[in-house]
Design a protein around this nucleic acid. Structure first.
Length: 402
RNA sequence: GGAGGGGUGCCGGAGUGGUUAAUCGGAACAGUCUGUAAAACUGUCGCCCUGACGGGCUACACAGGUUCGAACCCUGUCCCCUCCA
């Protein structure tokens, strides 16, 4: 058993409870719990209807990790029942029922990514079906009888929809109650999640109180703005950086962030110290530093966290070489060609371009080159080892078929 | 049970018989510029043939119909939404 840290300096507490945190209910109680030195059960749930974890989720996962590092226990809930209802914040209310196999596969994919940040050895994984699988109508009536419609309508999302005459499925009302019941079942001390989870967390507190448990603390992290710089990061908006993406991809996406988002990302996703962050802000504001350099630093930090230090170094070199010096990358996807083959066929076959029409357009736009020479037509003379470049960052290496 | 509104390209959303492959916005892609795969500016953005000009094909929920001609009119089917009870 690892020792549980129970004494904290002001600075440590501030780092743990302020940095990357939007709200804690009740903060003072949480501080007391931490100082008590008991191993806390930190609950985090997810729906296996989605599989992709992105940087937006990482904000919270990093907090979980920090708590683990001082000795606490994460309880990961696989929401195999709530997944069938659909999170009420989603636009669509009807979701296809997932098969048991799909749920299992999704959960595994999710967890593989989850444990890139969170310590697996200090995590207990629980499936909702362990308890909801046995639920009877009696249990459901007992659970739902503890709440009123008015209570449920306090939730902003429900309230808005109700006021706007938009539909609210009855099953959606069930969602917060089921999530709350999870807290009872696993005896959660603190529930972690995004700020949008506030209502559900509070329902958990209430239910725990009514059954005689000590109510959980609610630990909420801010929503990260996506790569578009406007909306919250989400898969459906396509403005995300996935936790599972390859190093060069993560690095590149960070480089394409708008400059004014740099500080926020450092703040929420890295361990760069407050003092240094403040200096970054000053330098940026005063035009003393090229934002590009800060972004490179950020990109390295993130790749190192999600892959490794060496992957970060490589991605950094790759970026410098390919985008700044416009040289060729050291590795490229290979494609087998027959001599005299039409360039359009090659690229479509390689899967880098969707259609021949698109290749035509790219050629017209001067986007395609072979070994540095711009291609004017689709008729080319391949040599083994030719590097075809499409746009700025797609490269194909030619291998002549025998 | 009754009344009404709607289903258009990756997304949002125009268009209500003929120059509509379909206005516009976003996304995406490309080019220019740049110390950034930032910003800004310009262009492209169904598929296929063509170096290009140009041509062909397929598309506006689905299935039929009217018409010289339909995303637009009619009929049926499926789906979504709102109001009244």
């Amino acid at each position: 058993m690892d020792a549980i840290k129970k004494t904290f300096s002001d600075k440590e507490l501030k780092h743990l409870l302020k940095r990357g945190v939007s709200e804690i209910i009740v903060e003072q109680e949480l501080v007391q719990l931490l100082r008590a030195g008991r191993k806390l059960r930190l609950k985090e749930g997810f729906d296996p209807s989605t599989t992709d974890i992105h940087l937006g989720h990482m904000v919270g996962l990093r907090k979980l990790r920090q708590f683990q590092d001082i000795g606490h226990q994460v309880v990961l809930i696989v929401g195999d029942w709530t997944a069938q209802i659909g999170d009420p914040s989603g636009a669509s209310i009807t979701r296809p029922m997932l098969t048991a196999e799909q749920v299992k596969a999704n959960a595994e994919t999710y967890m593989r990514q989850f444990f890139k940040v969170v310590d697996r050895s200090k995590t207990e994984v629980r499936w909702q079906s362990e308890w909801f699988g046995k639920f009877s109508l009696t249990d459901i009536i007992r659970l739902t009888s503890k709440f009123t419609v008015a209570q449920m309508l306090q939730r902003e999302d429900f309230n808005n929809r109700f006021a706007a005459n938009k539909p609210i499925a009855v099953t959606e009302l069930l969602y917060p109650m089921l999530q709350a019941y999870d807290s009872v079942e696993v005896q959660s001390d603190v529930e972690f999640g995004g700020q949008d989870q506030k209502f559900n967390f509070l329902v958990g507190r209430e239910l725990q109180t009514t059954v005689g448990q000590k109510p959980q603390q609610c630990f909420m992290t801010p929503l990260l703005v996506g790569t578009d710089g406007v909306h919250k990061m989400s898969k459906s908006l396509g403005n995300y950086i996935g936790i599972d993406e390859p190093p060069n991809e993560i690095y590149g996406k960070v480089m394409s962030l708008a400059d004014n988002m740099i500080i926020q990302y450092f703040d929420l996703l890295t361990d760069v110290q407050e003092e240094e962050l403040a200096e970054f802000s000053r330098e940026l504001a005063g035009g003393k530093i090229n934002p590009m350099n800060l972004k490179k630093r950020l990109a390295c930090e993130l790749v190192a966290q999600l892959h490794s230090q060496s992957a970060a170094t490589q991605a950094d070199e790759h970026f410098t070489r390919v985008f700044q010096k416009k040289e060729l990358p050291d590795e490229a996807q290979e494609v087998c060609v027959n001599t005299g083959e039409d360039l359009r066929d090659t690229l479509v076959k390689a899967g880098v371009v969707k259609s021949k029409s698109e290749v035509n357009r790219l050629i017209q736009q001067g986007a395609v080159s072979i070994d540095g020479t711009k291609v004017e037509s689709a008729t080319v003379d391949y040599k083994n080892g030719n590097i075809i470049k499409i746009g700025k960052h797609r490269f194909i290496k030619v291998v002549i078929a025998k």
